[in-house]
Design a protein around this nucleic acid. Structure first.
Lengths: 197, 197, 197, 197
DNA sequence: AATGAATGAGAGTTCATTCAT
DNA sequence: GATGAATGAACTCTCATTCAT
């Protein structure tokens, strides 16, 4: 197996486990087993658990960017539809996972960011980078709305993009703490409401 | 020392440590030491670490309710001022702590709720209860605004209260991930903006 | 069991194992088992393996000082007899151990000192301290010989004491590398020869 | 690269690493890296780490014999000068290394012999062989002194040769434990003193 | 009520070695 | 002859918890 393939197996296992079990509650035994390889093999590709967490956040961004943001933007013209589809896609996947294993997982980036922000600068920065990527898409949406004259606010688009990111974070946090994926639908409405009333 | 005093020492230590170090990264050694007693003594008052977490959330609610919500409401007539003061008080305390030890801690309820929602139903429910308490105060504010005719929305007050709670959660999450307490000031403005434009 | 008792059990096990198996080849499982307790218990008394090594050297000095040096000095008047008995006692014990388990162990202080001098300053210093203690006894012997006019050398007694310590070290090193306790008898003669011809 | 060249690269790396870091603290990763090749390549030339240690001792003998013993003997007529130069050469190299990297390394043969005498008969025998080689040179010196009538002792030359080897071992051991190459100069004087007073 | 001491289980990490090419 | 990749076993050390007093 090529080096990149093995790394990918590790990171995909890490994304899933850190998402569902938190960073600290995931141990390297479980991680290596989920990745389908020996623990020592994991350590030939990453120097530490923390390094895996950082790389996992980066990889999760790449994965999320595609099927959530890029696809939603490409398949809709109207910025409000784009926004709606972003939420819809997240809702669908969270709902499917919830029905499959009874877990409302929340946001993988918020989860690990909140858990490790004070313990690992590397993870913290990776999560910030993730948010910055997503905010790029929100910014485009906000600016398109502004161009159309539909935007309710007279605020910098970067600021509103951050607001949208915060709305997503709060929504997924609530869906996790309540263990209820339906909350995500409320979050979608609130996002729209916030932008265009 | 009375039974209650000892419990309080334990819970106050737990609140601080879970807040700054997360639940998993806090160990019972550190906890008992911070509480100023022997580890075995801690276990005479709580059956497990998880039980401490649950009780600590409850106690944190009591503590927060007083100096954040009750005080802010009592010392202001205008609901928008009440809302502003809630954020102001939280901002001031987070800023002071940040200046003291360089840590932007985020929201203690979100932190532990996100970390343990899937691992401990007890903690999850305690955090939900906490949010419900806070939402009660937000509901009063929203309803007062509605009575004044200043509220922009035509939505149930319970819903808007939840939105305000989510705004607080997102704000403190962002302040933690960015390690920047100033973010809280932005959150205050956004809350107001959301309610009255 | 009292704290000191437990520490003593640990150190006595460590002395034996480091002596026969070297520091690195002794693992904490074997050490805790030899001490008759759980591994975690060992770590409640010492912060690390290295800390055990340092304390073990100190304890080995105490133990050796008594039955080798103090006793030999007390039970003989003539300094040459004192010196002879020091070697005799060491010879007897090494021979007995060799016959019991087929291992000529060498000098516990040289063994660990040579293995760890560059890796652990703490151990290195402990070993130097050990040698200093033993040199104190050699110095007394040398000075007694000088007072009698039997000493062949016109050198500072501290220097000759160091020479005697070196002779012991070389002797026990040779006995280990050759796996032959009889070499110690040769070392005894050489020490005498060196001092009085 | 020829088979022999590769082996030599491995052994030279091993000599240096075992000397400075001990056998156990040197791992095969570091060894292969220092040898400039893949770990698997190392295992195509030696069946095990222990086999490398044994061969490394043999090679260290060859290397030492030349620039320490042969050269010292060839470049001096007087046996006492020969002995002095042996120590001088060792002193110079140890001092240079100490100044270069702050490590007084001690005797490579004593180091590994003491560490592994009980764990590896192969290494133990290799070290004994090393000492036998060096004792051959010491024997010549002792016999030359005896022929000149300058030797103080009436003892078999093989015995005195062993005494000289022990003196070297003790000297280098002391220089390592004290982390002071100057000790070697004292050892040189003591060797001479022992032979001729 | 409080504590000094102990522990089974398991944490993350590293070891010498081997496989497949 | 050489190497990238993999691994079972073992490493030091820590965890939440309990015992005995």
């Amino acid at each position: 197996m090529t080096k990149q393939d093995t790394k990918t197996l590790i990171l995909d296992a890490a994304i899933e486990l850190f998402w569902t079990s938190s960073y600290h509650a995931t141990n390297m035994n479980a991680l290596s087993e989920a990745a389908g390889m020996n623990k020592a093999t994991v350590y030939q590709h990453f120097r530490s658990k923390e390094a895996i967490a950082i790389a996992a956040v980066d990889r999760a961004v790449e994965r999320t960017e595609g099927w959530v943001f890029t696809d939603s933007v490409e398949q809709n013209e109207d910025p409000l539809d784009q926004l709606a589809e972003i939420y819809q896609r997240i809702y669908q996947s969270h709902k499917a996972l919830y029905e499959a294993d009874g877990m409302a997982r929340g946001c993988p980036f918020v989860n690990i960011g909140v858990e490790l922000a004070l313990a690992s600068n590397g993870v913290r920065e990776a999560v910030n980078k993730a948010f910055a990527v997503f905010e790029g898409y929100y910014k485009d949406i906000v600016e398109a709305l502004a161009d159309d004259g539909r935007l309710k606010h007279d605020l910098p688009s970067a600021q509103l993009a951050r607001d949208l990111q915060d709305n997503m974070n709060a929504t997924l946090t609530a869906s996790k703490v309540k263990q209820d994926p339906e909350v995500i639908l409320e979050g979608a409405k609130r996002a729209r409401r916030y932008l265009v009333g």
